[in-house]
Amino acid sequence: MSGELRVAVTGHRDLTPATAELVGSAIREALAPHAPAIVGVSCLASGADQIFADTVLDLGGELEAIVPARHYRPALPAGDRIAFDRLLLRARLVRRLPYDAPTPATYKAANDTLLDDVDVLFAVWDGQPARGQGGTAEVVGDARRRSIEVRVLWPSGAARSGDP
């Protein structure tokens, strides 16, 4: 499809239910003007990644998935594996990285792949430093170093589970 907008996503996994709704609305609002000529690129992790992927598909866009490791699915919370499976089946392209288990280095490699050939990165990010290698803040920094446009989506009232 000519004229596609290629959008990658990074974001927190531990969104509160109310934040998940706010984030879903923010993603929809940002993508709707480009629909259906959207290709969403995601690792389909819990939280922001799955919300983004569902929204891309709901708007008639196409999904590309990056699977960081062969044993990535079991590392996801049990409640998010069904959504992962459903989204993976709907992806037009699945890139499986050659690692056995998910590790911080594996996530870093997946994020590097995520940023290849995209126009913009949506970052569902509270602005805080990364909690480890491959975290949201690190992906944002890598995108900026590559001169990829970064659009931070952290709606007013958003919170992570466990935030004070």
Rank of each mutant, 00 (worst) to 15 (best):
G3Q: 08
A8T: 09
A8G: 15
T10S: 14
H12S: 14
P17D: 06
G24P: 00
G24D: 00
A26E: 02
A32Q: 13
H34P: 04
A35H: 04
A35I: 05
A37D: 13
V41M: 12
A45L: 01
D49L: 08
Q50R: 06
F52Y: 12
V56A: 09
L57E: 14
L57C: 10
L57T: 03
D58E: 15
D58H: 09
L59F: 12
P68V: 04
P68H: 02
A75K: 05
G79D: 11
D80T: 15
R81H: 07
I82R: 14
R86Y: 11
R86Q: 14
R86L: 13
A91K: 01
A91Y: 04
V94Q: 09
L97I: 04
Y99S: 07
P102T: 11
T103C: 12
P104N: 03
K108W: 15
A109W: 06
A110E: 05
N111D: 14
D112F: 07
T113P: 05
L114P: 07
L114Y: 03
L115C: 09
L115I: 08
D116N: 15
V120G: 06
V120C: 05
F122H: 12
A123M: 11
V124R: 08
V124S: 10
W125A: 10
D126T: 03
G127L: 10
Q128L: 15
R131N: 13
G134R: 00
G134N: 01
T136P: 11
A137P: 04
E138P: 10
G141T: 11
D142T: 15
R145V: 08
I148A: 00
V150I: 00
V150F: 07
R151L: 12
L153C: 12
W154D: 02
P155A: 04
S161N: 08
S161D: 08
G162D: 02
